[in-house]
Design a protein around this nucleic acid. Structure first.
Lengths: 334, 334
DNA sequence: CTGAAAGCGCTTACAG
DNA sequence: CTGAAAGCGCTTACAG
């Protein structure tokens, strides 16, 4: 048996397809008895409107994509998976309540066979400068909302992650003991790194520190970070605190400290950005920042559905980032 | 400007829509020059086939859903999020290579407005007995593949997680010192728990142990597990090793042990199932099992696309589970 | 080598 | 209170 269509149901109910349609959509009055009969029959026959047909006729309105600009394979190397997936989970819930489904899109290589990707909009997580993922959607005239502003694209609708404030929070906290504070960011040009580096430069100027900053390629993950941070700490032994926004890098920094015989937090205070499992389960636990990712995801979905429906996106601001103090940056007793 | 359709492109190229269609699909010969002209024009006009129309006409073939039978809100409380999301990431990659997109579906409450869910198939992760998620898709005649066999539904296509073997691996390992081994599972009736409990019963009989097992409601997460396991350990003080397949529960068990002043592994050896971040970042690190989730996800996608296309699913077996020994179950020196 | 026409399953003006 | 008809943008027999 093939799936019943609106025509079958209409015949069975002795009405026109028009009436069936309205019985379900409620877009115009249908005699209560007729409606009841239609609904009962639909139940019995197992009729449900074909969503594809509905979309074709009514135009869009079904699904949005969630895309990380980072390769999944890399992202999966714990770090960004947590960040992306926490957003994914919240976004899926919000999307559903807006009657939309959330498609998880793995990294788009240029020219990949993605013609099947049938979405009405896309959320791109922390796009980098000249991110090809953005071009992909622009070419297709698919509306995009970024999570974290897009470097070089001030015009692109985005949910602001308030990275400058986050940086301030972390640096002020780490600097409170008067120690020289170092900064480790990623070499990719994401807005959060850019803003953090800028705040860091100002912070150093205020405090009279010589900046001690390094960028590490995200693709190297924790292992590369462990090696790089160890070298960094050897070179700048007077560093008393380290701000490491990428949690995988922070985990690497922890290993580097151990390798050098430095105790965290007594010899080296450490803080990261994303308060995920990684920060919570590290030993010592890592001071981090509550970025309100649930709110971020919900706002992104709302802005995107707004864009899709042609409403101008009311930029609902996200709550201010909140420092979550943990053992890794406790005031040293020495 | 509205998006160009096949008719616009056909007019511009001076051919029929039929020819345009074939120029792209390659389903019949088109004069090379004509084809080149069409492609160039499409590029220029920004024409791309409307995937919705294509699907309506050609019938399905676009997207599959990934569903956890656990509420995201709960799942997000670290535990299952890792498990689900690791599968999601792999599945999304595999799906793309099969020209399919992966929709993340939050938990389906009965009667939720999910009519917009327009998928050709679904992967359900570790369904429980009488899982309503399965009914949801059955009602819609959407093909389903389970990850982990579905209790009470031996007929449902599933990727076997080889839970009996996993249980054997863990129990033999934990029992190798001759200690009495306890088992903590979830109260939901998932196949992995059921199989583990059965293997445990046999294991106890072989070893001559009196079984010491407990089930905890998954919804309570780590906190409830900490409390419950503490009580459990007080009641059965001769337990020397604990098999705790749910990683969140294992984390709770770690806390329970600490509360009782028991050292892991010296006083209590511990092992869990899913080798996620939680196991790796716990202190001490948790012995766990490599379930080959990437392979599992890929196989699930393959089986599902097979079902959708009417091919019988060749049940490609997953590699045997592999024990990953870590400090939490090291041979005690005492 | 290419076209005209039917049709996928809906929704929505238009009409009464 | 309800229907007949057009049309969303494609693909695919059928025909030449």
């Amino acid at each position: 048996m093939t799936r019943p269509t609106i025509v079958h149901l209409a015949q069975a109910a002795g009405v026109s397809p028009t009436t069936v349609s309205h019985a379900f959509s409620g877009r115009r009055y249908v005699d209560p008895d007729t409606k009841a009969r239609i609904v009962a029959l639909a139940q019995e026959m197992g009729y449900r409107a074909n969503p594809t047909a509905r979309r074709l006729r009514s135009g869009g309105g079904g699904s949005v994509a969630l895309v990380s600009s980072m390769p999944f394979a890399v992202a999966a190397g714990p770090s960004r998976l947590g960040f992306l997936m926490e957003i994914a989970a919240s976004a899926a819930v919000t999307a559903l309540s807006r009657n939309t489904t959330l498609c998880l899109v793995p990294p788009l290589e240029r020219g990949s066979q993605l013609d099947a990707l049938d979405v009405d909009g896309a959320i791109v997580v922390e796009p980098a400068l000249d991110d090809s993922v953005l071009d992909f959607f622009f070419e297709r005239a698919v509306p995009v909302v970024a999570i974290g502003r897009a470097p070089g694209r001030p015009d692109l609708p985005a949910v602001d992650l308030r990275s400058a404030e986050t940086a301030r929070l972390l640096l002020d906290h780490l600097g409170q003991q008067g120690q020289r504070v170092g900064l480790i960011t990623g070499s990719q040009r994401r807005n959060s790194y850019i803003e953090m580096e800028a705040v860091y430069a100002a912070f150093c100027a205020e405090k009279g520190f010589t900046p001690a900053a390094m960028r590490i390629d995200e693709r190297g993950g924790e292992d590369e970070a462990a090696v790089a941070v160890e070298a960094f700490l050897r070179q700048t032994p007077d560093i008393g605190a380290l701000c490491v926004p990428v949690d995988a890098f922070a985990a690497g920094a922890l290993r580097a400290a151990a390798a050098l015989g430095l105790s965290v937090p007594d010899d080296l205070r450490l803080a990261t950005r994303y308060d995920g499992m990684r920060a919570r389960l590290a030993s010592p636990q890592l001071t981090a920042v509550n970025l309100h990712l649930d709110q971020v995801a919900e706002t992104a979905i709302d802005m995107l559905t707004g864009l899709i429906e042609g409403r101008s996106s009311s930029p609902k601001p996200i709550a201010a980032p909140l420092l979550v103090e943990r053992a890794s940056s406790a005031r040293s007793s020495r």
